[in-house]
Structures are given as structure tokens and as C-alpha cells.
Design a protein around this nucleic acid. Structure first.
Lengths: 258, 258
DNA sequence: TGCCTTCTGATAGAATTTGATCGAAATTGT
DNA sequence: ACAATTTCGATCAAATTCTATCAGAAGGCA
């Protein structure tokens, strides 16, 4: 049997790995007809490039089960009638020439996809996906600013860079999506870094408008973004429960039911 | 057997390559009835054109074992053999645990798509599309930092936010794609804001490595990023003309021909 | 024919790859 | 916890491959 090129041998190791999840040095040496030392060197080379992970006796694919991230599907945001209604109510508040901010979230995503036609709009967002909507629309009169930072699983850029960026910016209106809201705990989110970033959003905006469907009421996330009274308005769905309406009207200047 | 034209011989090498995926110098020399030296020269010529990638002992169509992973490979940047070879040479310089920076560009994009498997890698980039490669790969040991800013048509985030972000960061190695390079004008780009951002990239990195295919030599863009001497190394294709090699070897510590 | 350019082959030294060996380290069984 | 077994990494020598360089062969042109 003719000898095999080193690169081909490494390719076969990866193929075997994908098929078997796990390979042993001894069996690879036998299968490939080379010494164990050579197999070890190949595994080292591949591991150095991150193509596999070495374990005692062989190698395995980078386990990384990547716990099913809830994700963020295009549909999810746009299929919901309530989110669409909220977005429609919100977009009426946006006029040409304004500057707005949108944090990452499915409701703000729905709002963004209704804003691409507005002239002379400046948009600040920490969501690459929301930014992508505007990039794709390529409206030359619009100015899209992405905050930078590290991305969370829910597509939000957070961390020092995001905070630093938001500290340098001021917008007319912020539309903020949240994960939960209650009378006692205010607006909350499950991610501490996102909460911090959202607080920076609030400081950067002259007016704060929360956009949240009715299912968010009564939910408390890990970390508070702000008490109810700290924002100017809330846009939510008509299905919101009656008691909640009363409590929200007390705490907020404006409650819009879409 | 009548002798064969050089071009016909190279064509037969390509045919054999398409059929077998891999060819070795010794067997080609025997099959074609020429010396190994001639085969090597043919392989070099074909590699310069990007038609194949040389490996020890022979050549392959696409030697990057990592690129065999099915998935998110945007053809546009990845189809060029020369860019692939440059990316392949560059990725060898990246070790697990390092922090790297990638500016926006097709060559850095090709490099990024070969880096998704490297463990404990921190990546700073101003390209949403490069960031997206890493987001999609979702390697939990990797840390992806997007600089923020305003996006140019060439997918680069620029402006005050980008500069501010890069001013706060320090990475081990920068891989910088450029639009042009000449002896007199150094590395250049047609966009002034990108030039400014790229300068910030250079300041943020302990080592600067330019990645550019041979077509960039002799081209001068609107705005200078840096003189040749300001960077540590250049990775380019072997097709680079001889005089350029001399000039670059004078100006740079390291010239890598991939 | 004589000269020049291009291609090819040969050679030598450098670089890479491979296999073997051996002590160190890790795993397993008791 | 201890010993036996297996596996790992470092090192050296051999083999293979690569690059650089020189010399000869083939073809074009005056």
C-alpha cells in the first residue's frame, strides 16, 4: 500500500473522529499504518488548531453540547400579533430626524423592521441582528450605530465596551425590551450584564419607553434594570390584566395599550 | 512518448488532483515522465495561481482540514486559493489562549473561518460578518469582542466608538487586511475612516501582521494606514513579484510567502 | 550560425517527517 | 495506597522532501 500524505492522514483522523466521536491512538496507528508516535504528533497538530481535543489514550471532538440556546428566530419576533401591534404603536412616536435607541429583544426587533423607511433616523443599538436589518435596508439617510461589546446568547452586546459606548451617546428616545415587570421589582432581565447595559441605555436617552407584551407582567428576572417609575412610558398589549393596568398607570406617566 | 508542453502537463496535474484529491510529487514525476524538480516547479506555479495548495510531499485541492466542516463558508472570500493559503499560513501563528484582532476584509474573513476551532481564543474585530462567523460556531471557550461604531459599505465598524473601543483594548497579534501596498506609500485603504480605525488596530496590538494577496502590491489607496516599516510581518502569496520581495524584505522583519 | 530566453535536469545542503527508544506521567486494578 | 500497565513527551537517527543554484537542452530570432 502506497504511503499517505501527512495532510491526508490528518484528514482521515478527523473523518474517523466525526464518525466515532472518539478515537484511540493505538487503533489509529493500526488503521493508518503508521507508528503511534506519528499519530500523537498528528493529534497534537490538530489539537493545536482546535480541530479536536486530546484525551488520555486518544482524542475526541470538542464536546461543547452548547445547551440549546433559546435562540432568536426571525419568525418568533414577527409572528406574534401582539408584538407587531406594539411595534406599530411605537413606530408612530418616531419622527424623521430623530435619534432612537433599541436594545436587544424580540419586540425591539419587530420595531426595527418597521423603521427602515424613516428618513434621517439615527439608531443606536446593541443588537447585531437589529443592526443587520438596517444594513440590509441600506437607507442612505439613516445612521446606524452599533455599540460594540461581547455578545450574549440573546444577541445583546454587553460589557465594558457597550457601557463605554453608551456613555458617549445621547438619543431622543429609547425603546427598551424587558423580560419581566412587576410592581415591586420593576423591569428585570435574567442576565446581569444585559441589565447593566440596559441601565446605560436608560441614562443615554432623554425619554424611555418600555416595549413589552402582556406576558411579561408578573415575571421577575434575576436582575433589576429600573423601577417602574424611572421610565416615561410603557407600550404593551390590550390583554394586560386589569389590576396591572391600574398599578402601571400609577407608576408611569404614559401607558399605551396597542 | 512525445514530450509534453508545460501547460498541458500542469493541466494533467490538475486533472489528477480533481480525481484523487491528493497528488504526490514522486508519483506525478513517474506518471508524467519528468523529474521531480519539474513537478515541484509546476506545483509552485499552480499554487501561485491559487489552483491548488501545496502540502509536504505533494499538493491538495483544499488542504485546510478545518474547512471540511460543513457549514457557514461564504464562497466569496473562500474561493480564492491564494487567500486560503494566506489564511492557512496565518492560522499557524495563532495558539490557544491568545488574543487576536481582525479588521474587516475578505482575507481576514477567510482567516476567521479557520479560527473557530481554536480554544481559549479572544478575538477583537470591527466586522459584524466576521463576528457572525464566530457567533455561529458558538465555541464556548472563545471570547468575541465587536468594537462598535458605524458600518461602512465594506462591513467595517468605524468612527469615534470604534476608536474608543480599540483604545481600551490590547491584543497579542493583529491580522490586518489592506487594499494596497507600495514601497513609498506603505499600506493604504480607500476609506479614510477605515484608515483611522486600522491605525487604532495597530496601536492596540503588540504584533502587527498584514495579510494581503499579491494583487495588492503596487496599489495605492486614498489614505495611508502605516508605512511598511511600522508593522512586524506580512503574509502574502508566492506570486508576488521579485522586486517587491526584495523591497519588502528590507522594510519588514518577516515576510511570509504562503 | 550565433546569441538569447526559457525550460528541464542534476546536485547539494537545509528542512521536514518519521520511527524507535526511554524515562516520566497517568490510568487501572487490587 | 501501591504496583502494574498503559500512555505520553522528549530526543536522536534515518529517510524523505524541499529549496536554491548551476549547467545543459530546446526553441526563437537576427
Amino acid at each position: 500500500m502506497t504511503e499517505m500524505l501527512a495532510s491526508a492522514r490528518q484528514q482521515r483522523i478527523l473523518d474517523a473522529l466525526r464518525e466515532r466521536e472518539q478515537v484511540r491512538v493505538t487503533s489509529l496507528a493500526a488503521e493508518l499504518g503508521v507508528s503511534e508516535m506519528t499519530v500523537r504528533r498528528d493529534l497534537n497538530a490538530l489539537a493545536e488548531r482546535g480541530a479536536l481535543v486530546k484525551v488520555h489514550g486518544g482524542a475526541t471532538l470538542d464536546a461543547a453540547p452548547t445547551s440549546s440556546e433559546p435562540g432568536f428566530t426571525h419568525k418568533l419576533a414577527l409572528e406574534s400579533g401582539e408584538k407587531q401591534a406594539i411595534a406599530q404603536a411605537a413606530v408612530k412616536l418616531i419622527k424623521p430626524g430623530m435619534s432612537i435607541a433599541l436594545n436587544s429583544g424580540t419586540t425591539t426587533y419587530a420595531l426595527a423592521s418597521q423603521c427602515t423607511g424613516i428618513k434621517d433616523l439615527t439608531v443606536v443599538t446593541n443588537s447585531p441582528r437589529i443592526a443587520e436589518i438596517f444594513y440590509a435596508a441600506a437607507n442612505p439617510s439613516q445612521n446606524i450605530i452599533l455599540t460594540g461589546g461581547i455578545r450574549t446568547v440573546s444577541d445583546a452586546l454587553v460589557g465594558p465596551l457597550a457601557l463605554s459606548a453608551l456613555g458617549q451617546l445621547h438619543v431622543d428616545v429609547l425603546f427598551l425590551g424587558v423580560h419581566g415587570m412587576t410592581s415591586e421589582d420593576g423591569f428585570t432581565t435574567p442576565n446581569m450584564l444585559e441589565a447593566q447595559t440596559n441601565q446605560a441605555f436608560i441614562r443615554a436617552a432623554a425619554r424611555q419607553i418600555i416595549v413589552a407584551d402582556h406576558t411579561k407582567w408578573g415575571v421577575t428576572g434575576l436582575c433589576q434594570i429600573a423601577p417602574l417609575s424611572q421610565v416615561d412610558a410603557l407600550i404593551t398589549g390590550t390583554r394586560l390584566d386589569g389590576e396591572a393596568k391600574v398599578l402601571l398607570r400609577q407608576a408611569l406617566d404614559t401607558l399605551i395599550l396597542a
